[in-house]
Simulated assay, not measured.
Amino acid sequence: MSGHPRISVIIPHLNEPDDLRRCLLALGAQRAHGIAFEIIVVDNGSRQMPSFAATLVPGVRLTREAIPGPGPARNLGATLAEAPLLAFIDADCVAAPDWLAAIVACFEKNRGIDFAGGDIRIQPADPERLTSIEAYEAIYSYRTQLYVEQYGFAATGNMAVRAEVFRSIGPFGGIGTMEDTEWGQRATALGCQIAYLPDARVYTPSCRSFTELARRWDRHIAHEFGEIRGRRFWLARWLGKSALMAASPLGETIRILRTDRVDTWRERALALGCLTRIRLYRATRMLELARHANTTGLIDLWNRENR
């Protein structure tokens, strides 16, 4: 890498060497745009340090964060970053060829933007024949425009922020938090301007099994339960949310019929079937939490074993 970097790309990594290799190769190809950038890979306790990362493509620094969780790993990367822009991407994501160019252009043209979220799409194993989980995730996972425009945060699998803004807001939370949601909503509450960047796109594999998909939702359920528990009438509210969750597939049929995220009637039917199964699973988990009120196992299991 020649010259001071204009953007620092930060990648947390945990036991995904093949995914990380694909991520780095896609980033290395973006030097064709002439943008000076650095890549900081922060390993978060892998069984084997991904030492190949330091030599696979130019401009990579490899380090390790001992504190568990993607938030602490990203925080260390941000501390080491030298560029005025930070771009966060997950190790299992592959950036589109103009990902960095789209981010840099947006921030240079729009000085009022403090941070932004890009588009995240599912990369199916066979684009001609989606599985039920791929069809479901193509529609319902990573609804990044909704996150940005309605909820005021950006998914850290594809997020960019001015370095000075990140440092003024403070670090991501630890393993017990939904770090991107919490950080983004903290930033917007303090007056930071967020934008959606549809041209800055990355692709990520779908979950490989229903068990993996369910475990991903366990984390969300646990955090949501932690936020509502102890509030006034929390049990009645939680039970009501559980009932609505179980019934919600009926109301999602129109969305599935109208979506442009899948193409065929077969894929729409598969998506509806998977949606029904996962929503019923979530409702059951919510009722279990209401009975036992123990979220620790759900959070730790997702963060350390499902990676």
Rank of each mutant, 00 (worst) to 15 (best):
residue 4 H to R: 13
residue 6 R to T: 04
residue 10 I to C: 08
residue 12 P to W: 04
residue 13 H to F: 13
residue 14 L to D: 10
residue 16 E to Y: 15
residue 18 D to S: 08
residue 21 R to A: 11
residue 22 R to G: 13
residue 22 R to A: 15
residue 23 C to E: 02
residue 24 L to G: 06
residue 36 A to E: 02
residue 43 D to S: 05
residue 43 D to N: 08
residue 44 N to Q: 09
residue 49 M to T: 05
residue 57 V to Y: 09
residue 58 P to K: 07
residue 62 L to P: 00
residue 64 R to A: 13
residue 66 A to S: 13
residue 70 P to L: 05
residue 70 P to W: 04
residue 71 G to I: 01
residue 72 P to D: 08
residue 76 L to A: 10
residue 77 G to R: 04
residue 95 A to K: 00
residue 100 L to W: 01
residue 104 V to Q: 00
residue 105 A to D: 10
residue 112 G to V: 04
residue 134 E to W: 12
residue 140 Y to F: 14
residue 150 Q to V: 10
residue 154 A to E: 04
residue 159 M to G: 06
residue 166 F to L: 02
residue 175 I to H: 04
residue 181 T to H: 06
residue 182 E to H: 01
residue 195 A to Y: 01
residue 195 A to N: 01
residue 207 C to P: 02
residue 215 R to V: 14
residue 217 W to V: 11
residue 221 I to C: 03
residue 224 E to M: 15
residue 228 I to G: 08
residue 232 R to I: 03
residue 235 L to D: 12
residue 240 G to C: 14
residue 240 G to P: 08
residue 243 A to R: 06
residue 247 A to P: 00
residue 248 S to C: 10
residue 249 P to W: 04
residue 251 G to V: 01
residue 251 G to S: 01
residue 256 I to N: 04
residue 269 A to G: 12
residue 272 L to I: 05
residue 280 L to R: 06
residue 289 L to W: 08
residue 292 H to R: 10
residue 296 T to W: 10
residue 306 N to G: 14
